[in-house]
Amino acid sequence: MEFNELYQEIILDHYRSPRNNCSEQEASAGNCVKHENPLCGDELLLSVQLDSKGGWIEKICFAGHGCSISQASASMMTEAVQGLDRRQALALVERVREMMRGAEPDEELGDVEALQGVSKFPVRIKCALLAWMALKDALDGGNGNYQTETIHEQGRS
């Protein structure tokens, strides 16, 4: 059933043992963006550090609370973008967004591919994209000197 496509074992694994999960203090100490999903009240703090030359994502961690999809997606995202440069990471964000619109990924995306099932659950796409949009914001905000708080209007009560 569709349900198992959504909650694939790999998603449950990232949900139960999230990678690069840190405390709120740790996340907000660095260069940090905060995204919220007003529909469910989920919050995600994402801290991204580029290397000293401003090229690669050197350290990335997230804190906050949310559903299994948003937490697993955040965990997968932090793994997937480690070591990528800004342009590569933003390209990956776009690829994941395309995937949420139902497109087949045009290259191997590793664990992230497990998120494909979410595209069949329109109300959950925002959960899956929360971390990716936070990353996009963080990278669009400037070269390691961003301190923005963006509240995305992603739904209403």
């Binding site: 349900f3 469910c40 989920d42 949310g66 299994s68 999809i69 959950r124 959960c127």
Partner: peptide, 9 residues
């Protein structure tokens, strides 16, 4: 269990 997961389940 996050309510969104509960709702979907």
């Amino acid at each position: 269990i996050h309510p969104h997961d509960a709702g979907t389940f």
